[in-house]
């Protein structure tokens, strides 16, 4: 019983960890943070291994929440540093890898953020997103559509701003 559980955990880790860590890497600044988030997601999964029915969805939702917390922490630190020092000294810190994706996803409301993260970044089909979030498939599709419209408007606004 325990051996089969360990084997299943090992197989899940081998199949899922590189993809999850790569997904986290696109949303955070460095490899170490991506590994930390992916490891924490797997730790939480195995700490309640017997009560989780959908390990893949659980890991991705947990990682999305951790990424969001990481962003909030960075934002607090950035504001604190901005208050403490000159703006010119802070600006290079905010311009990091893949800021557009991060800022666009961060600008979405909570209800639309998780479907976007799971569907587009974790490559989960709509049916799995529906099961994971507890919403109907039609609701998930509508949420994805609303999220895309918001992102498109945000992207257009940022492009107009740069031009």
């Amino acid at each position: 019983m325990k051996r089969s559980r360990d084997r299943a955990a090992s197989e899940l880790f081998a199949a899922l960890y590189p993809r999850l860590a790569g997904w986290c890497r696109r949303l955070v600044d460095d490899d170490e943070t991506a590994h930390e988030i992916a490891s924490e997601a797997f730790t939480r999964l195995w700490a309640r291994w017997t009560s989780v029915e959908e390990p893949r969805g659980f890991v991705y939702v947990t990682a999305a929440n951790l990424v969001r917390d990481h962003w909030r922490k960075l934002e607090r630190e950035r504001k604190a540093v901005h208050r403490a020092t000159a703006e010119a000294a802070v600006r290079p810190h905010t311009e990091q890898a893949d800021p557009s994706v991060r800022l666009l996803v961060q600008s979405l409301p909570e209800r639309l953020r998780v479907p976007i993260l799971l569907h587009y970044y974790a490559d989960m089909p709509i049916r799995e997103v529906s099961e994971l979030t507890g919403r109907r498939e039609g609701t998930v599709k509508a949420d994805l559509h609303a999220a895309r419209e918001l992102l498109r408007a945000q992207l257009r606004r940022s492009l107009d701003h740069t031009l």
């Binding site: 880790f13 860590a21 790569g22 890497r25 490891s39 730790t43 976007i116 970044y121």
Partner: peptide, 20 residues
């Protein structure tokens, strides 16, 4: 933005045991 190429980041050695 929403269809990026899939990235994979392999686990560091010993990460599995540490997580367990």
């Amino acid at each position: 933005i929403l269809r990026p190429p899939a990235d994979h980041l392999g686990p560091p050695p010993g990460r599995y045991e540490a997580i367990r």
